[in-house]
Amino acid sequence: MQDAKSPNYELTLLFSMAFRTAIDELHAELEQRGFGDVRPSHGFVFQRLAAQGATGIELAQHMGITKQAASLTVDYLEQHGYVKREPHPTDRRGKLIVLTAHGWECIRETESIFTAIESRWRDLLGEETMEKMRLDLRRIIQSSKAANPYSFRPPVW
C-alpha cells in the first residue's frame, strides 16, 4: 500500500504501457497483413514522408537521429519497397525521399488497424470517456514546457 508521501507516477507508466500495447498490436496485425518487415520507428518515418516527402536531413531531424542513421533507415525501407529516392525538385544535388505505392498501402492498413483498436476502446470505455480522454491528453501535451508541445522525438525501437 502506498502512503500519502510516496510519489505516485503510475499514470505515467500506464500511458507508456498503453502506447506500447497499441503499437505491439498494430505490428502483430501488420505482420498478418503482409507487412512484417516494418518496425515501430518506420511509422514515424512514414508520417514525415506522407505530406510531400523529405530530404535525408529533414528525416534525421524529425527522428532525432544522425544523418547516417536516417540513411540506413531509408536504405532498409527502399530495399523493402516502401520508399524511393527521387531527384529533389529545387536542389539538383539533393534527393527527395517519397513513399511508394507499397508505402501508402502500409499507411492505409495502419489507419485501418488503429481505427479498429480505437473502436474496441470506445466499446470498452464508452464514447463520452473516449472523448474526455482525448481532450485531456491534448491538454497534457499543450501544458508541456517544451517550445512546441506537438513536436516530439519519436521512440526509436
Rank of each mutant, 00 (worst) to 15 (best):
L30C: 04
L124M: 09
L77Y: 07
L72I: 03
M1W: 11
I117C: 05
K5E: 14
L59C: 02
I97K: 04
A147V: 10
M130D: 01
A51E: 11
C106E: 07
M130Y: 02
P7V: 13
P155H: 00
H88V: 12
H88A: 12
A22G: 15
H88N: 13
S71F: 09
P89M: 11
K84Q: 11
A50T: 01
G126L: 01
R92Y: 09
W157N: 05
L72T: 03
R108A: 05
R92F: 13
F19P: 00
I97D: 06
L26T: 12
L77G: 06
T90K: 15
T12K: 08
S71L: 02
Q52D: 07
V98P: 09
W121G: 00
D24L: 15
A18K: 07
G36P: 11
S143C: 00
R139E: 09
R20Q: 15
M130L: 05
A54I: 09
A54M: 09
V74H: 00
V74C: 01
T129A: 09
L96Q: 12
F44A: 15
G56S: 14
H27Q: 02
R120E: 00
T90V: 15
P87R: 12
P154H: 09
S112R: 05
E31V: 07
G53W: 02
A69I: 00
Q61E: 10
P149L: 15
R48A: 10
T66V: 07
A147F: 14
T129N: 04
K145N: 06
A18N: 02
K67I: 11
G94Q: 07
V38C: 04
T110I: 01
T66C: 03
G94Y: 03
A28G: 04
A22Y: 13
N8D: 14
R108S: 06
H27Y: 02
I141K: 04
F35Q: 13
E131R: 07
L30N: 10
D75A: 00
H102I: 15
E105T: 15
R20S: 14
L13W: 10
T55M: 13
L49Q: 07
T129G: 00
P155R: 12
G53C: 05
I113E: 01
A60Y: 04
Y150W: 15
H62A: 09
S143M: 00
S71K: 11
E111H: 02
F46R: 10
I23K: 14
I23C: 14
R85V: 03
K132T: 00
I65Q: 04
E127S: 02
I57F: 13
L96I: 01
F44N: 14
E31F: 08
F46W: 05
H42N: 08
I117G: 01
T115N: 04
A60L: 03
S151K: 15
L96W: 03
R20L: 14
D91Y: 10
